[in-house]
Amino acid sequence: MTSQHPPSSRLQADGVRLAYDDAVVVDDLDLQVPDGQITVIVGPNACGKSTLLRSLARLLKPSAGRVLLDGDLIHSMPTKEVARRLGLLPQSPIAPEGILVVDLVARGRTPHQKLFQQWSESDERAVRAALTATDTLELADRAVDELSGGQRQRVWIAMALAQETELLLLDEPTTFLDITHQIDVLDLVRDLNEHEGRTVVVVLHDLNLACRYAHHIVMMREGDIVASGPPAQVITADSVRDVFGLRSVVIDDPISATPLVIPADQRQHDRSDDQ
């Protein structure tokens, strides 16, 4: 916790095995989430990205190994205590029918409230700040059902922001969004990280966006971490072929100078190197 090199990590997984019923998804996995950075987890469908994220957020208890938050076993901590330090936006949260944006965002204050402390000045301030940061203040009175996909996603992020946790986990926050809204959401993530110093972990599908926004990339395949580190080290033509089975050329992104994966034409070559 106090060491500066390598970057300290408030949230880490230590030899975890994650399983649903009998199906083991992840086994003996180690991960340190670097503080104050944006970590992006990438990997093919069903490689265990979301499962890993759920276990980091205490939603899934490892059947072996442990997840530590600030050095304590996360599964022995009170749920509320975890919720004050770590926020999570799940893949498909459900908005109750007819709920207003402000009421939804206000629910992010839950871990800071008590039975007879239902709405303090700091609750009001945090919700206002979250709405402002996500540019949804003028939507406050609207019903969530009426919003576009991009607006709705910003509102959900606002809810997680209102929780005021230094650690924020986002499970595929850009799914179902068009390219403009994907960029909006990720710019917002970057702002949160740069201006407020929040540690963010994001699961993403788009490798190029992952490279552009991540300080630290974690690449997963079949429940294992294949590589992790800065994008330029992790995302290479070789690693993309190994992990995704996709032949590609990796060049420098002309805007951000991060790796840019250009898929090769998969049909023109013989398929022997797929094996």
Binding site: T79, K80, R84, L89, P93, I94, P96, G108, P111, A160
Partner: peptide, 20 residues
């Protein structure tokens, strides 16, 4: 009712908000 209204957001979201 407070817990009930949080559960209405889905189990994972409720848990992330500190509801057991």
């Amino acid at each position: 009712q407070r817990r009930l209204d949080r559960l209405d957001l889905g189990d994972d979201t409720a848990a992330a908000l500190g509801i057991n």
